[in-house]
Amino acid sequence: MIEYIDMILPYLTTILLVSSIYAIFALGLNLEWGFTGLINFGHVAFLAIGAYTTVMLNMSGYSLILSVIAGIALAGFFGFLLGIPTLRLREDYLAIVTIGFSEVLRFILLNEEWLTRGSFGIHGFERPFQDVIPYQYYNIFLLLLFVAILGIIYFSLEKLIHSPYGRVLKSIREDESVPSALGKNVFSYKLQSLIIGSAIAGLAGAMLAFYLQYINPFTFKPIETFNAWIIVILGGTASNKGTVVGALILWTFFSGTRFIEEYVPFESHQMGAFRMIIIGLLLMLLMMHKPEGIFGEREELALSD
């Protein structure tokens, strides 16, 4: 029995660690899309900005906490920059500009080796409390830390969306001409939502770097954006609880497919493509048939018209 637990515990820890990071990442997207109706197809860019800023600042001698804060702030700042030209226009424009930005950012991370070490990636940066915590317990510690952060983010967002502020965000999602006619500065609210969502993604980026101990541009492929979309939609758009559950489901599923990998006659590039096809199909089918998600709160998003 004990041996059994010893075997399964590290595995479980890994799933939970990754899930908590992705839950936070997706909570940022849920604020933007689920509550405000913004389409951000480049969410991964903010994950990357958070991760790179944190580790690069730390490697050049700044304290860890300061580096993380800078990472969050810079991610939020880029949300602001992208929001300025797009958020007064139709929702399509934000989608285009964010997806373009995430691709351009990946090129920059790959090519500006003087800054980012290109495809070699970065490792050897500090992890929180690494001197104090014994190595064999480190992941458990990290898990506790991440769950605590997730808790803080989750409850803050819940508070946010159940406030008059959240009411304005939801009204923008529904039909922005109504809050406009009532005197709410829709553009400013959209911008704030994008900034907060991006900053949260930046935080998730720092966490991802701590977990992986190594980042390179390939850590931040476009697919990560769509993983977040799947998480949000799976769990029920506009439900923070659903988003956390969605993250857990997706990563349990992904680690499940690792076992299957040995039994299917796919080559390695095919396995990656296969996974993306599944993600794409899931996105299409969920939006077509179950836009309220599997755990959507009542029929909040199911009513058409």
Binding site: K159, S163, Y165, K170, S171, E174, D175, P179, L182
Partner: peptide, 26 residues
């Protein structure tokens, strides 16, 4: 605002609500 309740639809309207400023929530 179809996916908000009738009450929420009305409560949205008044202007200069303190809770519409993000920092005020805390």
């Amino acid at each position: 605002l179809t996916k908000m309740t009738v009450l929420e639809n009305l409560m949205l309207a008044p202007n200069i609500q303190c809770g519409e400023q993000i920092w005020n929530i805390w």
